[in-house]
């Protein structure tokens, strides 16, 4: 057993877990944060994407012990109270989901993608960058639209903040 301590969605947590505990199981089973999904469990589908120390990772392929001392953000940590994150709002506005299973991972990857491209995004870049997230319902079209719309809105917000 190993004691892991990390910040999850701004709150410090500490638990004793098995060394082989996966980060995704730590989040879901030990912390009850079931917004992060397990899809394929083989690092392909991206349903389990969370941010670890500011970077999008597949939490089914990271041990909780590897994240010890780090900072994790999950889909539950994205909204500001009742105010949805701009990308969550854009998924709603543009109907970027059908069954919703891939959505938490899509949104966490989308936020990471927008943050890594502060100068803006085009459709081709979004489609290439979504390589690691699989959706079996939508055909991706509205997901791409939602990410592009949120990227534009977030840039506007950043410009306003700078002015």
């Amino acid at each position: 057993m190993v004691t892991v301590t990390m910040t999850v969605n701004g709150r410090q947590v500490s638990k004793e877990v098995e060394d082989r505990r996966l980060l995704v199981d730590f989040l879901r089973e030990d912390l009850g944060l079931t917004g992060t999904h397990v899809g394929c469990d083989t690092s392909q589908c991206g349903a389990c994407v969370v941010h670890l120390d500011g970077k999008a990772v597949k939490s089914c392929t990271v041990l909780a012990a590897q994240a010890d001392g780090g900072s994790v953000k999950t889909i539950e940590g994205l909204a500001n109270g009742a105010d949805l994150h701009p990308l969550q709002a854009a998924f709603k506005e543009h109907h970027g989901l059908q069954c919703g299973f891939c959505t938490p991972g899509m949104i966490m990857s989308g936020v990471d993608l927008i943050e890594r491209h502060p100068d803006g995004l085009d459709e081709k870049t979004v489609r290439v960058e979504l390589e690691g997230n699989i959706c079996r319902c939508t055909g991706y079209h509205n997901i791409v639209k939602a990410i592009l719309a949120a990227a534009e809105e977030m840039r506007g917000g950043m410009r306003q903040a700078a002015e």
């Binding site: 990772v57 990471d112 690691g132």
Partner: peptide, 9 residues
């Protein structure tokens, strides 16, 4: 290589 999440690790 891989995808963005894989490249982060």
């Amino acid at each position: 290589i891989g995808d963005a999440q894989v490249r982060h690790r």
